[in-house]
Design a protein around this nucleic acid. Structure first.
Lengths: 111, 111
DNA sequence: CACCTTCATCGTAATATTGCAATATACTTA
DNA sequence: TAAGTATATTGCAATATTACGATGAAGGTG
């Protein structure tokens, strides 16, 4: 085994899990946070900011891009990365939805 | 390798990554959603609801509990599970924070 | 053109995750 | 106490992830 049994879950559950999984690593959290720290988008220097080798960072960036969390614009020799708001918005509204539902059933809890 | 280089990232980044990681699997998403679907907490029948074996579900529950996302109350022979609002609140505010910052720099974007 | 820079890909080693059968533990009830 | 029920743990196989050195591709510069 070792492979997730994707086929047994709903498409929504798999979609949100994939999106969440893309952020389930401190390096990718760090990348997203770094992309936000600056005023505009970042062109190139992500590798210098992270304590990981260039191939590793490239791999993490690829995962973020595949998940739709970041976008990359090629600009000559470098690439300009920035966060895709839509993906973040999805995550935010997902957790906001859970929070709202939790608030509703506050009185019906046993633990 | 294969092990995450936790020591190179900030404690905050590792903390939020761990929390996110706990939800980075459709089965655990399904568990959390099932816990919310009902009026009160669930005592026992999580295994029947999931397309996975009892040991596998037990393992996923353990991970969610370790991460602090759910609480389990032992009640005689069964266990009553429910979501820990604090953890969800943390996640929600994390993504809300990112969203807010993204809103601010909307005009400074190149892609 | 030769060389440098930037980023991606390949190949591979180390480790982690997923899933389940078998078994253990703990409580309940007959 | 014996049998049944609910959940946890163990042990293992299959697969995925993480990380990096080496190398490749593509654009820029002397």
């Amino acid at each position: 085994m070792g492979a997730t049994k994707t086929e047994h879950f709903t498409e929504k559950q798999n979609t949100i899990a994939t999106l969440i999984k893309a952020l389930a690593h401190p390096a990718r959290i760090a990348i997203v946070e770094y992309l936000m720290k600056t005023e505009a988008c970042i062109c190139g220097d992500i590798v210098d900011e992270l304590p990981l080798s260039q191939p590793t960072v490239s791999q993490h960036l690829k995962e973020l891009k595949t998940a739709g969390l970041i976008k990359g614009n090629v600009e000559g020799n470098t690439i300009c990365y920035c966060i895709d708001e839509k993906a973040i918005a999805k995550l935010q509204s997902y957790f906001a939805g859970i929070s709202a539902k939790l608030e509703k059933k506050k009185d019906n809890k046993c633990c």
